[in-house]
């Protein structure tokens, strides 16, 4: 075909005519920012055979960063897979500053080594669920503060000996922060020590150094007063992932650590034991004054260490 000027002019005219067609074909300015998928609910938490109540965080996979403070359209049911026994969990609203969250709970007692199914359904019939196997029972751990004053460089290690567990889900201390005069406790603070686990034959232990760990690392020399303390140890069921070997970024991926069908999150199975440790609180309370002096800039030996 020979392209003559006339043909070029025709092509130009056609293109000019086509331009408005493009325009009308592209009138839609709306945007669908969220991807449609069969993911209905976010479910987080664990079922605990050692606890006298169960709390599970449930939220619809929402399309706003704001949590809102309204009820959510969710029916949460816990089912013993073997017996078929079903329990409806009740909603409870917890407020953390600007965040309002829904924790569904029940005082049903769960049994070790049994399989449970937790399902969350909305009124449209969309269901997210998870099947969880609880671990076997394990003996009470041996928790001791072993010697020393806790004043650097003479540390006082906290030894937690655990036996007969396949996997540890968590080791943490819950500190009750309060006032020296014995006033109303201000808040609870949890510190996980799972990364301090040392594996011996048949025994797992945690070594903690009270002064450095607590005041320097945890509270950056803010020197809170500790009025009470509890050690919490939990064994994990077979589905529990090896969380220590997965970085935070990976943990946040939707498909990496999840056992929620048609949803996101993770529901674990654990068996926990709580050991009251007032002697740990006493030790830390005694060190508070030392911490304050270091924070004020004194050059005493404990501060150097």
């Amino acid at each position: 075909m020979i392209w003559t000027p006339i043909k070029y002019r025709r092509l130009f005219t056609v293109l000019l005519t086509a331009a408005p067609l493009y325009l009308f074909a592209s009138c839609d300015t709306s945007i669908e920012p969220f991807k449609e998928a069969d993911l209905y609910f976010s479910i987080w938490g664990y079922l605990d055979a050692g606890a006298d109540s169960q709390f599970v965080r449930v939220s619809p996979l929402r399309r706003s960063i704001s949590l809102g403070d309204q009820d959510i359209d969710a029916t949460v049911m816990l089912e013993d897979v073997e017996s078929g026994t079903k329990t409806i969990l009740r909603d409870s609203v917890f407020v953390f500053g600007q965040k309002t969250v829904h924790n569904y709970w029940s005082d049903v007692l769960l049994e070790h080594e049994k399989i449970y199914r937790l399902s969350v359904a909305n009124s449209a019939g969309d269901v997210s669920d998870a099947v969880v196997t609880l671990p076997k029972a394990f003996p009470d751990p041996d928790v001791t503060l072993q010697g020393g004053t806790g004043v650097p460089p003479e540390d006082t290690p906290l030894i937690i000996k655990i036996s007969d567990v396949d996997r540890i889900a968590g080791i943490k201390v819950i500190y009750q922060l309060g006032t020296p005069s014995g006033g109303v406790p201000t808040e609870y603070y949890e510190v996980s020590y799972l990364d301090r686990v040392v594996v011996w034959p048949d025994v797992l232990a945690v070594v903690m150094i009270p002064y450095d760990e607590f005041f320097r690392n945890t509270f950056s020399e803010l020197c809170p007063f500790v009025s009470d303390a509890w050690v919490v140890v939990a064994s994990a069921g077979p589905d529990w992932p090896d969380l220590l070997n997965i970085d935070d970024e990976t943990l946040a991926r939707p498909d990496v650590v999840t056992n929620i069908n048609n949803g996101v999150g993770f529901l674990g199975g654990v068996s926990s034991k709580v050991i009251h440790m007032p002697e740990l609180a006493d030790l830390l309370a005694g060190l508070q004054n030392l911490c304050s002096r270091c924070a004020a800039g004194e050059k005493i030996v404990a501060c150097i260490f």
Partner: peptide, 23 residues
């Protein structure tokens, strides 16, 4: 990049209690 939506992660590595963790 289209997201699926928002939620709150609970740090199970820290064995966080949903009653004490905003996520």
């Amino acid at each position: 990049t289209q997201p699926y939506g928002f939620d709150e992660i609970i740090s199970l590595r820290d064995f966080a209690d949903v009653r004490r963790s905003p996520g």
